[in-house]
Simulated scan of single mutants.
Amino acid sequence: MTTNDKVQQALESVVAEYGIPGIVAEVEDGDRTWFGTAGVADLRTGAPRQAGEYFHAGSSGKAFTAAVLLSLEAEGRLNLDDPVNAHLPGVLDVNGYDGDKITIRHLLSNTSGLFATGLAPEISYRYATRSGFDEHRFDTFTTEELLRVAVSQPPVGAPGERFEYANGGFYIAGAIIEKVTGNGYAEEVERRVARPLGLTRTRVRPTADSGYPDPHPRGYSHQFLKDGADPATLTPENWQSLMEEPGLPPLDVTELNSSLGYAAGNVVSTTSDMIRFLKAMITGSLLPPAQHRQMWTTVSTEGSYWMPHTRYGLGLFEFDEQATGGRTLRGVGGSFWGTWFFAVGTPDGRHTIAVHTNTEWKAWDPMFKIIEAEFGVTIGG
């Protein structure tokens, strides 16, 4: 069985096993290229997934934010070890946070001590249930609102103490970009990342936009709490036990306002463009050597509720070599309502795979199964 056959088999397996409506995978491995699909792009019409589809790349946008800030550092306009108060005085000086101690590096490595932003009542009460989501799916968040949400709950640790995945840190990072440059976040991503890399089908979604260019899959979600569950009781430990029962039909969430993502993840792209982006991040073709080294100076994610067997850099991740049998694999990814994307590649950038599902993250096993099929590794085993 060829590698392509193994990956195709893995795609079909995860669609059947995890209730994923549709999935695509694009591979570049030296001279070998391959594109595979399973499932459908539209549950109503049965239309298949296809190459070139646009999708929301979720928290992959964090890597774009990190790349912009590293570019600004290379120009001498800031330093990653600057405290937040050097650029946004007072924004972090509430609820037990200290803007003189939390640095830009802490924000980008998820080691700031900020709480898990998605658990903020301002977010969970709007989107935690199907009825709430439908009522609020077109709500627009301003940067000021997002900055308030980022610090609306007390710290979970001291700056630099441990890894805790927090979108709020990237909201603050995006605001620093805008303060330092005087330009909008989307404009700086276009100027410093998308245009230099030739990412012609990639952009930060405009605040007022709630759809996608064609072609695109429909997005479907089961990411809701059971009826009667109180979002105020959500914690990183118990949220899975409060989710709605399996077997319910998914909610079509294709059209929604994603301004909640902001600099933590609001990039719309394609598998081809994201492969090009990941290659540049892995090989250092976009950033100077000093900044590239910083991007891949990683911290352990052990003990967190994020992806197992990984270390986190600045907006990207690297699999722990002990979990891959000594192979180094680096990646980027993220989930949002109705979408889950990840891309993984080797350190030379010659072998990469990009995968998208038109539903949000359900478990890590589908990702590991596909990576194992493509790279011949057994993650964690």
Rank of each mutant, 00 (worst) to 15 (best):
D5T: 12
K6A: 15
Q9V: 05
S13N: 15
Y18M: 08
Y18K: 10
Y18T: 06
I23V: 15
I23T: 11
A25Q: 05
R32K: 15
V40F: 04
V40D: 09
A41P: 02
R44N: 13
H56M: 09
G58S: 02
S60E: 07
K62A: 07
A67C: 08
A74L: 06
E75S: 11
R77T: 12
P83T: 01
P89N: 13
L92G: 07
N95M: 13
N95F: 07
I102D: 14
I102R: 12
H106A: 07
G113K: 04
L114S: 04
A116C: 03
T129K: 02
G132D: 03
H136K: 06
R137P: 00
F141S: 07
T143N: 02
T143C: 04
L146C: 01
R148A: 15
R148C: 13
P155Y: 10
V156R: 04
A158T: 12
G169Q: 09
G169A: 12
I172P: 02
I177T: 01
E178V: 08
G184Q: 14
Y185D: 11
E187V: 14
E188D: 14
V193F: 11
R195P: 09
P196C: 06
R201S: 15
R201C: 12
T202H: 05
V204C: 10
R205C: 12
T207A: 15
S210P: 01
S210F: 09
G211V: 11
G211S: 15
P215L: 07
G219F: 11
F224R: 07
A229K: 00
A232F: 08
A232L: 12
T233A: 13
T233D: 11
L234G: 10
E244T: 08
G247R: 01
T254G: 06
E255C: 08
S259D: 05
L260Y: 14
A264Q: 04
G265P: 06
T270P: 00
S285F: 08
L286S: 09
Q294L: 15
S300Y: 12
E302S: 14
S304L: 13
S304Y: 14
T310W: 00
R311P: 03
L316A: 06
E321C: 00
Q322Y: 07
Q322T: 14
A323T: 04
G325V: 04
G326S: 08
T328N: 08
R330Y: 00
V332D: 02
W337T: 02
T339K: 05
W340K: 04
W340Y: 13
F342C: 05
G349R: 01
H356F: 14
H356M: 14
N358C: 11
T359R: 09
W364G: 10
D365F: 12
K369S: 13
I370Q: 00
I371V: 15
E372C: 01
A373G: 10
E374V: 10
V377F: 00
